[in-house]
Each structure stands twice: as C-alpha cells, then as structure tokens.
Amino acid sequence: MADTAVQRVEGAGISGQRGFLRKTFVHNLPAKIAALPMIATVLIVFVGCTVWTIYYSFTNSKLLPTGKFVGFEQYERLFGTSRWNVSVTNLISYGAMSLVFTLVLGFLLAVLMDQKIRFESAFRTIMLYPFALSFIVTGLVWQWIMNPTLGLQTTIRNLGWTGFSFDWIANPRMVLFALLIAGLWQGVGFCMVLMLAGLRGVDDEIWKAARVDGIPTWRTYISIVLPMMRGVLVTAVVLIGSGIVRLYDLVVALTNGGPGISSEVPAKYVYNYMFSGGNIGQGLAAASMMLLTVVIIMIPWAYLEFGGKGRQS
C-alpha cells in the first residue's frame, strides 16, 4: 500500500517533468523555431555586448580593448571628473522637466484636439510634423533661431525693442531650458498623438454616463478617462524615458555641450572618450553607469507591472 503510494507520487513527478519539457520545447514547435533568430540576437547582441561592455569597463583599455584588469580605477576617475558629474546632473534635470512637460502638454493638446474641432487632421499633421525631423535638424534649426547675434534676439532688437534679450543658448544657467524648448518642440506632437489615440479608445457610453451624473468635463478627464488610459501612459513614459537617456544628437547639434560644459550629457561623454579620446575603458565605465541608471529605474517598474500580476492570477 505504502509502496504503491510512493510509486504513484514518483510517477507523477516524472510525468510532470516530462510535461514541462514537452511544453517548453515541443509544444507549438514552429513558433519556437521562428523565434530562434530573435532569441539568438537578444542573447548575443544585447546580453553578450552588455557583458562585454561591463567587463572592459574594469580594464585600462585605450584605443583597442586589450587592457589589463584594473578594478574600479575607471569608475574612480569617472566620478572625480567634473564634466561627468555635470553631465549626470544635467540629464536628471533635463529628464525630469522633459518627462513632465511632454506628458502634460501632450495630454492637454490631445484633449483640445478631442473637442471635435474643424480641420482636426490638418492640426494633427502640423503638430506631428516636427517629429518627422531628426534631432540633428531640430538642433540646427533652433541653434539658428536662438543664436543671440543671428537669430530671434537680433531680429526683435532690429525691429525696435532694443531691450529684448533671449540669450539662453549662450547662458550657462539657461541653456538647459534652450535644450528643453527644442526637445519639447520635437517630441510633444508624438506624445499628443499617442494620448489622442488613448482618448479615442474610451467608450462614448462612459462619457454619457458621466454627463448624466453631472460630473464636470475636467473632472471626467482627470478621474475617469486618465486612469483608463494607463496602457497608453505607460507606453508614452517608456518612449519618452528612453529618448531622455540616450539624449545626444540634440545636444551635439544645438550647443555641443556649451557654453563651457554646462549642457554636457552622459552619452556625449561616452562618445568623446571612446572615439576622440581613445580611452575605451573610461567610455565603457560611463556607459555601464548609464545602464545601471536604467536598470535601477526599470526593475521596480517591471516588478510592479509583471511580478504583481503573476501572483494575482
């Protein structure tokens, strides 16, 4: 009796394992074969290169990745460099402002668009147009507009308002806002279109119900519609966030890090030390720090998003 019971339990264990293997490898085989190239890409390109990057950030490699292991030396130098520290501070302030303003302005514009206005598609095209331009073009255009001796400031002064001043691009304290203007001009339209799609996804019945209950329109937007757009919001935050971390081309085109080092960003530091500075170790150490920042932000979010749901179901 006892023997059979033990046997049955063992049998169940084996068949369960087999079932697991079957489920993992054999079930829906064509789909798994089709996914192999992508899996290989992820493992080799993304994971492999990340590991490579982190490994060589602990070496004293110069132009070629051939250096000796030197521990945290590159990181010590990194955090002793004022240019890097300024870069990080800049990215944090720019990132916070950019995230908030893009979301708020994008949502407001989307709400305005949603009021059944005339020529909606024309407005939508106009708003989305800057997004079709690369950051390099955006940067150059705004560089000319904001250049104190050639652009807006001189134009207005020549028109007679001699006291007019708009020299943000040459002013170390204001240059981040100059970047922000160009960045928002480029990115808000896209955020607006995302939000508009989200708004359109809200059922008309809900609006009718809210109207019957006498809830004011603004209240409906904030308390009912916005929470229903959670998916769109997450998408928007992820897209804006990744745009912020890799901020590089806009800075190169608009200010090239100046005046002085007041608009430097981490990605530019990485590029300068890897390529023109010929110091791969230093560049990779900086790149690893950028990765770490992203990981620190992503892990709690991923845990909330996926971990929580897994336990519920």
Binding site: K62, T81, G260, G278
Partner: peptide, 19 residues
C-alpha cells in the same frame, strides 16, 4: 600627449573659460 589626456585638457579648458 595621448588623445585621452588631450580630451581631459580640452574639458578642463572649456570649463575654465566658461566658469
């Protein structure tokens, strides 16, 4: 000087000019 050192110098000079 190595280009790494030159890059550090350039960073220092750019910062000095402005700040």
């Amino acid at each position: 000087l190595s280009s790494d050192t030159q890059q550090q110098m350039q960073d220092l000079n750019t910062e000095f000019l402005d700040d």
